[in-house]
Design a protein around this nucleic acid. Structure first.
Lengths: 122, 122
DNA sequence: TTAACTGGTTTCCTTTAGTAAACCCATTAC
DNA sequence: GTAATGGGTTTACTAAAGGAAACCAGTTAA
């Protein structure tokens, strides 16, 4: 049984959808992508992250970091400093999201430039 | 006043954050990225979209499409067929999100393959 | 005239997301 | 002893997202 062109294209399309759905499930919510974006510049401590991600409450940050850890994207290490500090960093799997983060960031920059250009014209 | 290396890196980082925040604001919620993903294969009618995006309720689809239209990412056209049909398609601006959608989709496929490989081992 | 189809909207309800503020524990500094 | 710092958790609450089902309007086929 040979599939025709339309079948193949619909298959590709269906896989595409499933892949998008899967990714977005892991990255669901308002904060996860921003957290990963912050960590993509290197490890950060809890309070440091809270400072970077303006508007996030400690509770949310804590919960989202736990989610990300559960999904193997982020690693949590308690450092025996005094007072103790906790370092969060991306796992290699977390780093594999870099192309996604970059694409989002790039688009945001273009978007921003467009807005600025629009304002200058007016 | 010359900025040192650390300043510049923090600037880049800050811009990165803002860009990510801006993008994610436009694409907020559970469905927008999936809708754009569906439309990236070409224009679709309302019921057609609803069929593609499994689990979405008419109310949500309607609302999300309105949001996307307001933000200039999607175009809505009423076709004078009988019964009337409504066609949704990406604007050029909407299409400019293709790299984001593709990055997400690609990662999802890798993720899925990883899961499958994991299952086979066990 | 009754039903079906497209493209919704409305209502009611539940779940999840999100917030602020208080609290907790260990440590070290004053 | 009292405050400050780091890294949280708990409580109590509000706002927003989301879902199921009913409903509606125009058209057309049986």
């Amino acid at each position: 049984m040979q599939k025709d062109k339309e079948d193949r294209s619909q298959d590709a399309c269906a896989h595409h959808h499933l892949a998008i759905r899967d990714t977005m499930e892991l990255l669901s919510g308002k904060w996860k992508i921003r957290i990963i974006g912050s960590l993509s510049f290197g490890p950060k401590r809890f309070m440091e992250l809270k400072g970077y991600i303006d508007g996030i409450a400690a509770k949310m940050l804590s919960k989202e970091l736990q989610d990300l850890e559960t999904n193997g994207l982020v690693n949590r290490t308690v450092l025996q400093t005094k007072p103790i500090t906790v370092e969060y960093k991306l796992t290699p799997y977390g780093y594999s999201l870099q192309p996604v983060i970059d694409a989002i960031s790039d688009w945001g920059m273009q978007h921003r430039n467009k807005m600025i250009a629009h304002l200058k014209k007016a």
